[in-house]
Amino acid sequence: MIIKPFTFANQFFSHSSAKNLIISQQNNPNFLSTLKKYTLAAYEVSLKQFVNDDRDFITAYLVNTIDFIDTWNDASIQKMSIDACDKRYLELVITILNEYCHDTVSVYL
């Protein structure tokens, strides 16, 4: 979840009972925007269990990095793969993860 957020989200939604609803709303930007905001807010709450210090700042930084990559990728002509999004995310947050997150996260880095 914390190391590969794009893979995690993709696996979660592909196995979710809401999958058909989400697919049916692909042309509804208001629904997708609301879903994204809700998902990122829930993800931020979940992240706090992994962060040692300065929880609000660090989790907001991580979530906003995910949002930035996702928004940038959506606007790009040539889309990055989920793996490429996860890789870019790690490139941008690796220092934060190593410095502020529990040792259990470091095992995966």
Rank of each mutant, 00 (worst) to 15 (best):
Y100I: 06
F68G: 08
L109K: 02
C85I: 12
T39F: 14
D74W: 00
K36E: 14
N27S: 09
N27C: 07
Q11I: 12
Y108T: 10
L35R: 02
I94Q: 07
T71A: 07
N73L: 01
L90F: 04
D67L: 07
T71W: 01
C85N: 14
D67Q: 09
A84T: 09
D53R: 07
N30D: 00
S24K: 12
S24E: 13
V105K: 09
H102D: 03
I77K: 02
T34R: 02
S24I: 13
A41F: 09
K79D: 01
D83P: 05
E44H: 04
N10S: 11
D54Q: 06
S14C: 03
D67N: 12
Q25H: 07
K87G: 05
Y108C: 10
V105A: 06
N10W: 15
N28I: 11
D67T: 09
V93R: 07
V51A: 06
A60L: 10
L62T: 14
D53V: 08
L97G: 02
L32I: 12
N98M: 01
I69W: 09
S106M: 02
S81R: 08
I77C: 01
L92E: 11
Y89L: 07
S76A: 07
C101V: 08
I3H: 03
N28L: 06
K48S: 15
N73E: 03
N20P: 15
L47F: 01
Y89P: 08
S46L: 09
K79V: 02
W72D: 02
V51N: 05
Q26P: 03
Y108M: 15
W72H: 04
P29N: 00
Y43I: 15
T104K: 08
R55P: 05
F50K: 02
F8V: 10
L21D: 05
N20M: 15
M80R: 05
T34A: 08
Y108K: 15
Q25C: 05
E44G: 13
I96W: 07
S16L: 12
S24A: 10
A42H: 15
R88I: 03
I69P: 09
D83M: 14
D56S: 14
P5G: 11
M1Y: 13
D70R: 06
E91C: 03
Y89W: 08
L92K: 09
Y61W: 15
D67V: 04
N30W: 03
R88Y: 03
I3M: 10
F68V: 06
L109P: 02
F6E: 06
P29K: 02
A9D: 06
K87N: 06
S14L: 15
T65C: 06
W72G: 00
